[in-house]
Amino acid sequence: MSAPTPTSAATREAYPFGLLDLVEAGVDVVAIDADLSVSTMGYQFGEKHPDRWMTVGVAEANMVGIAAGLAAAGKTAFIASFAAFLPGRCFDQLRTSVAQPKGGLNVKCVGSHGGITVGEDGMSAQAVEDLSLMTSLIPFDVIVPADFEEARQAIVAVGKTTRPAYVRTGRPKVPAIYGRDYRFEIGRSNKLREGSDVTLIACGILVEAAVKAADFLANEGISARVVNMATIKPIDREAVIAAARETGAIVTAEEHQTTGGLGSAVARVLAETIPAPMSFVGVDRYGTSGKWDELLGYFELTPARVAQAARDAIARKR
């Protein structure tokens, strides 16, 4: 089963393909699910490699501990659940059993259905805290891919390190941004549009909104750079510094609260280097039921809001 290059696919659909690539590359992978494998798509890997996959029932804490034990014995352990439950349900286990052993254990967490676009299930299933939690675990890399291809490559990339990592995937199908020629690297952002008046830094499903916002702004004569910052941690400092130096105003856009995620990481780089006016687009309240695309409108995770945030930031330039 080789990975397709779909024009429209959910990032979660890439998870099993990334795992298959890793096994093919000789990585000693074991993947675990907690009774949501038909949602995380982990079951597709299990069908190909039943000896390398297990489900532990609805028991996220146990899943983390098992992964830590596997990693301590030399395996590359992947665990997957809804982002609301991984890390939400098992943060302490991630901290004590995975993050605190010297350098962190080789455990990769895949939080699917990240953000509010899980939709109808409502606020309990909608993770707007996962990036805050996972960036706070010291040895972890934290990645939010924007499309299928980037998600597949992100799974492969984290699987080839020995560090713990968190990869957030999403439920809805999103348009392809990248083809097979794209090369994802942990900690390296990808510039999708050049621009000189403002930089729109986005991750995940908001990357597409940022590109559309840049189109709106272009109609007004505003030149907006668009950066896909898929790696939240370690953040691509050079790209942020270049954006501040060359465009003088920054917008961050994420399907997450504005504390502890992409916006906070970018703001820190600016504060330490070249302070620039900045606007944050995110979800700073709990969710509600609705269709995922309706919710993007309800929470104003829209090109129009990103464009307005850009105008606000530009107006604060000195």
Binding site: A68, L70, A77, S97
Partner: peptide
């Protein structure tokens, strides 16, 4: 957390 860790080691 120990019994969970043991399951991973044993597996």
């Amino acid at each position: 957390q120990g019994l969970s860790f043991a399951i991973g080691q044993a597996k």
